[in-house]
Each structure stands twice: as structure tokens, then as C-alpha cells.
Design a protein around this nucleic acid. Structure first.
Length: 399
DNA sequence: AACCCGGGGGC
DNA sequence: GCCCCAGGGTT
């Protein structure tokens, strides 16, 4: 659904008043979590990495054990892999603990065993990206850096009625800017943690508890009563791959066979070469056969056709398929090439086969199939994939 | 079985 | 610098 509101622009005073309101709430209601006992960067680091993949309640016992086993960055750097994996066992995403150890070794070499205190160096460590880097920098070193995760994006999309799709990578920049405009200069770490808590406990995805929210007077979505319209997240319509063999067939007059698509659905009433839908497996088998076939031909060219008497010998899936579909056609040995086209919800993969109608044989037109002179193509509506196929044919012919 | 989501890595 | 996707558990 589109909302199409204008984003909220705050006055300077609103910008100033927001963070004290949030911090007051945090001072009263902050969650007491083991990694908040102090701001040691190693503890922050371990907790943030664990929390990237696992819920708070699950992380707590892992966190304690990890710090017992590897109390310092040096211990982590020197840990046996077995023990390291044992400490992570059940958390999953094992590459992340490997990255942690790699970063720990790096810290031993480059930073004398101490987590660096500037954002560039923090971000240079393996496994530490903008979110984790911002968390460590702000919490442990009071760097004025945002730590933006899905929760924070939800909070900000509501506060400012931001309609940028939070699923898109490029939206990150928008949220980054907004957080930088509002983040507390004095207590950036607490500010970031307060946002995390707010997102986790108040500004929740489905039923936000706006009545108890410390930011209710600031919230654009609440003022418009559109809390649950935010954040905007376009549901990923995954494009379904479809596989076709297209038949570019010429008759003795040089006309091409065109097929009119059904009057409803995708590309209704538009014209293409006849399309045979094939399974994914068949498609790739055909492609593979085709490549193998090319290897055996010294100089493959447009006029390399399958002799009619050889048709029965061919067990290649491409030829078998074509012969079955259009028996009165003599087929070129290889497809002309591949055409791909992406629709909003479909991705077409098309192998284009070229053939000539055999004059002596009877050729039965399917429903909606017509012979069309090339010079008349202009008066037919060709969808993009068809245009691409015509282009491919032209290209080969002009070689 | 779809969704989640910071970061690595490919481009 | 931008985008894709692996990764395992949760819903």
C-alpha cells in the first residue's frame, strides 16, 4: 500500500527536545541486560554479534559463558577453534564467530590488543559493519554514530512518516541522516540503546504501545493515526522464472510464423514467435546439449541445418522437442541464442530456435498462429521479449 | 516454507 | 559504492 504522505520535518526545537525525552524514559525503563553492566567494548562487541542472530533471552547464557571462556580480546584471538565453536554451538551463523576471531587477531596486531576508538578503525575489522560499529563506537567511546537496525528504522519511519522501503539498501542513507540529525551529542550510546529498547518493547511491529511511548508527542505516524502503515516494506514479490523455447519459423515465402497471445493475462493480445514452455530442467538440458553440440562443429553457422534423414537419429532434447512440436519444419542445429526478460513478477528465459517449413509437408497452423511478412511486422504489437528475439535474429543474419 | 537482516563479497 | 545472498532459527 502506498501512503504518499509528506515526510515530517521537525523544527529545531523538536530536534532538540526529542533526545532528552527518549533518554529520560531510558533512564527509568532501560532493560537490565548483562552486557549493559559496563561499556567495555569487548562486551559490547560480543553481545552485538550474538544479538544479530538471536533473541535476547537466548543470548544471555551464551554471553556469560563466552566471557568466562574468553575474558579478553587476547583470549579470543588465541582460542582453539574447537573451543570457539563449542562456545557458539547452537547459535548458528558460525562464520560470524570466525570473523570475530579474525578481527581479534587483527586487533592484537594492529591495535595492541585494544578495540580501536575511532570509527574508521572499528569498521575496518572483519564482521563489524555500520550497525555493530556504530553500537561499539557510541556505547564504548561516546562517538556520535548511529546504530541502525530494523528496529530503529521502524521507529524513525513512524516518527517522520518516512516512506522509503526499509527493505532497500539505499534507504539506509535516509535513516542514517535522520538519526544523525536527532542523536544526543552528549549520550550517543544511551540514545542508541534507548532506540533499541523502544523498538523492542514499545514501538513494536504490529501493535505499538503508543499511549506509553516517550515520543508520542513527536510521532508523525501517531498524529495521523497511521502507526501500522509504517515502516513501508514492499513485500518482495519474487520473480518466478519461466522457461521457453521460441520458434522462429520461415515458410517458402519468407514469412515468419507469429502467434497471438490470449486476450487475458500477461501481454494480452500481443504477438510473439510461438513459445513452448519447458521445465527448468529441460531448459538447462537443452542449453547444455547446445553447447556440447557446438563443440563438435568446426564452424557453426546459420545454415547448418539438420538433414531430414538425420532427424530420427537425434536424441538431443532440443531436436526431439522441435520435431515433435513442428514436424514439417527443418531445424537449424543450434538455437540462435538466448533472450531474457524480467517482468515485475516473472523472469522469462527463452532459447530461440530457427527453422524452415518444408514445402512438401503439410503444416498445420495452431489456433492464433499466422504467417506474417517481415515488412508487416510494424503493424503488429510486439512485447519486449519479442523485440529482443527479432533483434537477435537480425544480429545473426547481419554477421 | 516464508521471513528475518547485518555484513561479506561480488560486481 | 551498490546490490545480492547465505545463513539457521522463528513464525
Amino acid at each position: 500500500m502506498t501512503i504518499n504522505n509528506q515526510p515530517i520535518i521537525w523544527s529545531d526545537s523538536q530536534n532538540r527536545e526529542m533526545s532528552p525525552a527518549l533518554l529520560d524514559w531510558y533512564d527509568q525503563d532501560m532493560r537490565l541486560l548483562p552486557w549493559r553492566e559496563n561499556t567495555d567494548p569487548y562486551r559490547v562487541w560480543v553481545s552485538e554479534i550474538m544479538l544479530q542472530q538471536t533473541q535476547v533471552v537466548t543470548v544471555i547464557p551464551y554471553f556469560h559463558r563466552f566471557l568466562e571462556w574468553f575474558p579478553t580480546i587476547k583470549d579470543l584471538a588465541e582460542a582453539e577453534e574447537d573451543r570457539l565453536l563449542k562456545a557458539w554451538e547452537g547459535l548458528g551463523y558460525y562464520s560470524r564467530v570466525r570473523n570475530m576471531q579474525s578481527a581479534a587477531k587483527d586487533i592484537m596486531v594492529r591495535f595492541n590488543g585494544e578495540m580501536p576508538s575511532n570509527i574508521e578503525d572499528i569498521l575496518s575489522l572483519k564482521g563489524i559493519g555500520p550497525y555493530t560499529g556504530g553500537a561499539i563506537g557510541s556505547i564504548s567511546y561516546k562517538l556520535v554514530e548511529p546504530a541502525i537496525d530494523g528496529n530503529v528504522m521502524r521507529v524513525y519511519s513512524r516518527l517522520f512518516c518516512l516512506e522509503d522501503d526499509i527493505g532497500e539498501v539505499k534507504s539506509r542513507k535516509i535513516f542514517d541522516e535522520k538519526v544523525r540529525e536527532t542523536i544526543s551529542q552528549e549520550r550517543p550510546g544511551d540514545f542508541n540503546q534507548a532506540l533499541m529498547d523502544l523498538g523492542a518493547t514499545v514501538c513494536t511491529p504490529t501493535s505499538p504501545k503508543c499511549e506509553i511511548c516517550p515520543l508520542k508527542e513527536f510521532c508523525g505516524a501517531l498524529s495521523r493515526d497511521q502507526m501500522t502503515d509504517y515502516p513501508v516494506k514492499k513485500k518482495k514479490i519474487k520473480t518466478v522464472p519461466m522457461y521457453y523455447v521460441a520458434l522462429a519459423i520461415q515458410n517458402e515465402l519468407g514469412e515468419y510464423l507469429l502467434s497471438k497471445r490470449p486476450s487475458d493475462g500477461l501481454l494480452a493480445n500481443m504477438w510473439t514467435y510461438p513459445l513452448l514452455e519447458v521445465t527448468k530442467e529441460a531448459y538447462f538440458q537443452i542449453e547444455k546439449d547446445w553447447k556440447n553440440y557446438q563443440l563438435d562443429i568446426k564452424e557453426p553457422n546459420l545454415f547448418d541445418f539438420v538433414a531430414e534423414e538425420d532427424l530420427n537419429l537425434l536424441d538431443g532434447s532440443m531436436m526431439a522437442l522441435l520435431k515433435k512440436e513442428k514436424p514439417a519444419v527443418i531445424w537449424q542445429k543450434q538455437p540462435l541464442g538466448e533472450v531474457k526478460h524480467v517482468f515485475s513478477h516473472r523472469k522469462w528465459h527463452i532459447l530461440l530456435a530457427k527453422g524452415y517449413k518444408v514445402a512438401e509437408k503439410e503444416f498445420i497452423l495452431d489456433q492464433n498462429e499466422y504467417w506474417v511478412k517481415e515488412e508487416d511486422f510494424d503493424s503488429f504489437v510486439f512485447p519486449k521479449p519479442q523485440q529482443k528475439m527479432v533483434g537477435l535474429l537480425d544480429e545473426k543474419r547481419n554477421k
